[in-house]
Design a binder for these strands. Structure first.
Lengths: 199, 199
DNA sequence: GTCTATATGAGGATAGAC
DNA sequence: GTCTATCCTCATATAGAC
């Protein structure tokens, strides 16, 4: 990777971090430049479309990061129920580490953008769609029928994202822990049922 | 209500609306003044602490609004399962009406504030805590044991908030509809179980 | 590719007349 | 209580030298 590419990547990952903490509008270009130790003069060389382009790239990074995070958890656990619980709890650890000041970048930005921010809308749509598909596939592989897999995917994803928001709002891991426990229990029950029908 | 109080209330409810659309940092005082048809000169008479005070009041209003919304749904439906599904779907209608440009004010603001915004942190904490307690009580009244009620409350609340975020990000009511269907099914099953143990 | 300097506008907040 | 005018800071973005 050339030096220029390194700078580019450092800007993007710093931006992702700031988005998780403050969201879109509170994150300024000056702050991005400072915290990434990037040369300010070359910002518009690397990202000709300005702030929106930087943030869109940061959202893509957040999407990829989460996808690999989920994939890891699936490999590390025998059951879907355990994997989902582990994923949910990992966000609890993330929040505790950062004093309840971070949540998923797509979650923060999604609440701020309007119709005009075309680049961001696209990045958000693709990011969420990617996660949804990942979860649907996970449930399908675990023998859930297609419609059930889709519904479980939405419920699971919604609960994980929402629990992050609640945990951050209340500065407590309780919502994430309770959500993790419930998801493990309920997904486990459903799994048993589908296994019996199968076998 | 005096004219001054009316102005005050109009500012607060306009702010709540803007928070739902854009969040905290994107909402400016000028915009609040314009859209509420309030006199700019009296902003700091009504709210001496400035923007943070206005937003804190708007968050309180959002909290109260949702509480009464939930209470209504509970009265209108026989079972907790149906009430929860109805509440979830009502957010789908809200989103469709406004072209997927609105979500819960506490949800949007919670993703943007840091440690310094003391007033906002307090308003968020109280708002979320109020909802949580409301849901816990609901499940307890429906014969759920205390710990189960707490866990179901967090899962339900998380799922509803998260589904709003996903729906907004993907501009689709699918996450809300799937989440509503799942919550109705799962809460219904749990209810049956606890009813049997009871009777 | 990176620098400095700057254009241009919007943000929140305040002062003082009425 | 409401008005106008204004201050100060910060934002994004651009221009032009190197």
């Amino acid at each position: 990777m050339t030096k220029a590419q390194e700078t580019r990547q450092r800007i993007i990952s710093t931006t992702m971090d700031l988005l998780m903490q403050q969201g879109y509008h509170a994150t300024g270009l000056n702050q991005i430049v400072q915290e990434s130790n990037a040369p300010k003069g070359s910002l518009y060389f690397h990202f000709p479309k300005g702030k929106e382009e930087i943030v869109a790239e940061a959202l893509n990074l957040a999407g990829e990061w989460t996808c690999s995070h989920v994939a890891e958890a699936l490999q590390a656990h025998d059951s879907v129920a355990d994997a989902v619980a582990a994923i949910t709890l990992s966000f609890a650890h993330l929040l505790e580490e950062d004093n309840y000041g971070k949540s998923c970048a797509l979650l923060t930005v999604a609440q701020e953008v309007g119709d005009d921010d075309v680049l961001l809308r696209k990045a958000l749509d693709e990011g969420f769609a990617g996660w949804y598909q990942l979860f649907v596939d996970m449930f399908v592989k675990a023998q859930f029928p297609q419609q059930a897999a889709e519904r479980w995917a939405d419920l699971t994803l919604s609960a994980i994202e929402g629990a992050q928001a609640l945990a951050r709002g209340q500065r407590s891991v309780r919502p994430l822990e309770n959500t993790a426990a419930m998801l493990r229990l309920l997904i486990g029950n459903a799994q048993q049922m589908y296994d019996m029908n199968q076998g």
